[in-house]
Computed example of a mutant assay.
Amino acid sequence: MKRFSLGLLVLLSTLTAPLWAADSISINELKQAMQADKAPIIIDVRDEDEYLAGHIPGAIMVPAKQMDQHLDMLKQYRKQEIVLYCVSGRRASAAATVLEDAGFKKVRLLEGNYPGWSEVQ
């Protein structure tokens, strides 16, 4: 019975754990950094049509599903802070995992993602 309880506890903790390991940054924090000319590298992980419809100024477009194909291009930013965003956070989270697995240490997710950003503009 103890083994069953322990197994159930492990399963529940896995299910309630966050979907991503990366830290987050608020929209206000990002805006302040941008206004102070201390903006992190901002990566829009949405698809091209979404990016072209509107994006955060200065954002680089690297679709989440192609993140692993762009690691060579992105390695120049390995030691810099990187902020990822999409629409809901799922693609940004997946992209953050790819970057973290490739050795990027300062990966953050934008709270509210692009919908949150566009609301305050």
Rank of each mutant, 00 (worst) to 15 (best):
M1L: 10
K2I: 08
K2Q: 03
R3D: 05
R3V: 04
F4S: 09
F4D: 14
L6N: 10
L6M: 10
L8Y: 06
L9A: 08
L12P: 10
S13Y: 13
S13F: 14
T14A: 03
L15H: 07
L15I: 06
T16C: 15
T16W: 15
P18M: 05
W20S: 10
W20H: 14
A21L: 15
A21S: 12
D23M: 13
D23F: 04
S24A: 13
I25K: 12
I27G: 07
N28Y: 10
E29H: 09
E29V: 08
L30W: 04
K31M: 02
Q32C: 09
M34T: 14
M34G: 08
Q35P: 15
A36R: 07
A36Q: 12
D37I: 06
K38M: 05
A39H: 15
A39I: 02
P40F: 01
I41D: 13
I41S: 09
I41C: 00
I42A: 03
I42K: 11
I43Q: 01
D44G: 06
D44S: 02
V45E: 02
V45M: 05
R46Y: 02
R46M: 04
E48P: 15
Y51W: 00
I56H: 02
I56G: 07
I56L: 00
P57L: 00
P57D: 02
G58T: 06
I60K: 05
V62N: 11
V62G: 05
V62W: 00
P63Q: 01
A64I: 07
A64Y: 13
A64S: 05
A64R: 09
M67L: 10
H70R: 06
H70E: 00
H70S: 02
L71W: 03
L74T: 01
K75N: 12
Y77H: 06
Y77F: 10
R78T: 12
R78K: 14
K79I: 05
Q80R: 08
Q80A: 12
Q80W: 14
E81Y: 05
I82N: 03
V83K: 07
L84K: 02
L84V: 02
Y85G: 10
Y85S: 07
C86M: 05
C86V: 02
V87C: 11
G89E: 02
R91M: 01
A92E: 00
S93E: 09
A94D: 13
A94L: 03
A95N: 04
A96N: 07
T97P: 14
L99Y: 03
L99R: 08
L99W: 01
L99D: 11
D101K: 15
A102P: 15
G103S: 01
G103F: 04
G103K: 06
F104V: 09
K105L: 03
K105P: 14
K106I: 00
L109I: 09
L109T: 11
E111K: 15
E111T: 11
G112C: 14
G112S: 14
G112H: 09
N113L: 10
N113C: 08
G116H: 13
G116D: 13
G116F: 01
W117R: 04
E119N: 14
E119Q: 15
E119H: 11
V120E: 09
